[in-house]
Amino acid sequence: MIVAQRKPIDEILAMLAGCRRVLVLACGGCVSVCLTGGEKQADILASQLRLAAKARGQEMDAQSDCITRQCDREFFADLKADPAGFDAVLSIACGVGVGYMSELYPAVRVLPGLDTTFYGANVGPGQWQEYCHGCGQCMLAWTGGICPIARCAKSLVNGTCGGTKDGKCEVSPEMDCGWYLIYQKLKAAGRLDELLAIRPPPDWAKDRSGGLRRMSVEELADLGKE
């Protein structure tokens, strides 16, 4: 899932300066699960905005709404009110939702209420961790299912650097060394020989360096043409 964090309230208030009518729009997808962009968070944020405006002697009509997903056109039909009627829509979807809605409603000012951070999974109560970087060339087959691109702070592909200490990364004593995890996993599985192969430099064109990434499933694309 995509994990995102709420922006600091001061940053949100600065974005909304001069806005009288604001729609805080939640997303029922990933950000609902990580408890930052769901229906409840939208209600809370809307009331925070009203209170903050009041404290400044201003008035803000901040409403909230939630649709199933902000990354699919069809769900926008469920909006309770026309977004064009607001000075701004504060979307608390991930950046995909914010960007997609901006494209769907070019005349509406859609603002981000969250900072989209990573592709992760739940690792404990209220805790999410990054597992994938979306590099476009999955190498988990030979790394024991542990991603060196996402889990190594340097995204190295040929093994550990000299910055590993007690299984932790030089970046932080709280951060596991990704390559230490890979090594332990492959050692336990009796597959350390996987580590001996020289891995060529990644093709970063498949990552962000190739520019905008798109995917097309031919069967569906053909159906669309018919």
Binding site: N158, G159, G162, T164, K165, Y180, Y183, L195, L196
Partner: peptide, 17 residues
């Protein structure tokens, strides 16, 4: 190479590469 790290095998594997 870092010879005196507590887990030296990964260092040696990388050195070999």
């Amino acid at each position: 190479v870092t010879p005196c790290t507590e887990e030296v095998a990964p260092q040696i594997i990388k050195l070999e590469k």
